[in-house]
């Protein structure tokens, strides 16, 4: 008994849970709203890996705003893989030499196994009649979306709103900024993660519309009932890729590269895609696309490359200190 306790204490002090000695553990550091997704993926991945590689694996999870997570990894959070929701956050890791600069080419579709888009969640019956991005600048609308400084989700919302405004105001920068300023000033609270924003909207009942990934919008309706909330898909939205990467610096040190790579590949497998589709992520694999087609409304998606000229430019123009985001993020 005493030995068992000592072993348990030793195990936890070494950062491993008291499980079978042969089990390899990896840590997946992810964004805030992917809690249910990776809960489901991990449950299926473990037996699948056992069957194919005959090895026991356990996947640990950490969830928070994507940029916050990137920051924590720079500070020493030992992630074997990252499953983020924005290219910029993986680029932060590349800059800190945690992943190689060519991380995007290591997995298919820009290393993004599935995608989503910013969409609206409104209260039952849509009492404020919120239909599109234009409604967000109204005086009587309170909006909830997460802090663009800490959350990739929040930044996608900013970019999607800007993409719409660029079209609507024919590129008139003055009008675009005016519109965005109004949208930001309609946000009473910027939570630091996507799930915290959802909680604010559904539990604390703050705001008329929540802007978050379509996966979270549809997932929340499924979980909390369609008699309470409605989904609104705007006329145009932004393709939101969810990039993944093996954290080279960590896996090389821990000797977990093989498992980490297998884990991310699993996300692209038919089973992985099926799980993602079932949890309202738009997927690439043909049979999963067909299976879940009905749950996704048609929407015109623009890309970061088309509208903004790529992430590097976005980072320099919009998200740098004193950049375009700071100009409209008046109440930060």
């Amino acid at each position: 008994m005493n030995k068992l306790f000592t072993a348990a204490v030793a195990a936890i002090l070494l950062g491993t849970a008291p499980v079978l000695a042969q089990t390899t553990e990896i840590l997946n550091v992810s964004y805030d709203i992917s809690r249910e997704l990776f809960d489901a993926v991990n449950a299926k991945f473990v037996p699948s890996y056992k069957a194919s590689a005959n090895a026991d694996v356990k996947v640990n999870q950490s969830h928070a705003g994507s940029s916050k997570q990137a920051g924590l990894i720079l500070e020493g959070l030992e992630a074997d893989v990252v499953t983020f929701n924005q290219v910029i956050d993986v680029d932060t890791l590349a800059k800190g030499e945690f992943v190689t600069a060519d991380w995007k080419s290591k997995f298919a579709n820009n290393a993004s196994p599935f995608y989503s888009l910013p969409a609206f969640l409104v209260r039952e019956g849509n009492p404020k009649g919120i239909k599109d991005w234009s409604d967000l600048a109204r005086d009587d609308v309170k909006i909830i979306f997460p802090n663009p400084k800490t959350s990739g989700n929040g930044r996608y919302t900013y970019l999607a709103a800007r993409a719409w405004a660029t079209e609507a105001f024919a590129g008139d920068e003055v009008k675009i900024e005016e519109y965005l300023k109004k949208v930001f000033s309609n946000v009473p609270v910027f939570e630091t993660g996507g799930r915290a924003a959802t909680t604010t909207f559904v539990e604390n009942k703050i705001g008329d519309v929540l802007i978050t990934f379509e996966a979270e919008v549809l997932g929340t309706i499924k979980q909390l009932g369609d008699d309470q909330y409605d989904a609104v898909i705007p006329s145009v939205s932004l393709l939101a890729e969810f990039p993944v990467a093996v954290v080279d610096k960590v896996v090389d040190k821990r000797g977990t590269r093989e498992i980490a790579t297998a884990y991310l590949n699993y996300l692209y497998s038919p089973e992985g895609q099926d799980i993602a589709g079932a949890l309202f992520h738009r997927v690439h694999e043909a049979s999963a696309v067909e299976k879940y087609k009905a749950q996704f409304p048609e929407v015109r998606l623009v890309t970061v490359e088309d509208v903004f000229g790529g992430w590097d430019k976005i980072k320099a123009d919009h998200f740098a200190e004193g950049g375009l985001l700071d100009k409209v993020f008046v109440n930060q």
């Binding site: 950062g15 849970a17 840590l27 809690r35 640990n60 999870q61 950490s62 969830h63 928070a64 924590l72 959070l77 799930r195 915290a196 909680t199 539990e203 979980q223 909390l224």
Partner: peptide, 22 residues
């Protein structure tokens, strides 16, 4: 803490986590 589930979450943190998990 880094909020690694089942690793570095103490009970008070777990309360917040469960709350955000609905």
């Amino acid at each position: 803490s880094g909020a690694i589930r089942g690793q570095t979450n103490t009970l008070p943190l777990q309360i917040e986590l469960l709350f955000n998990d609905f």
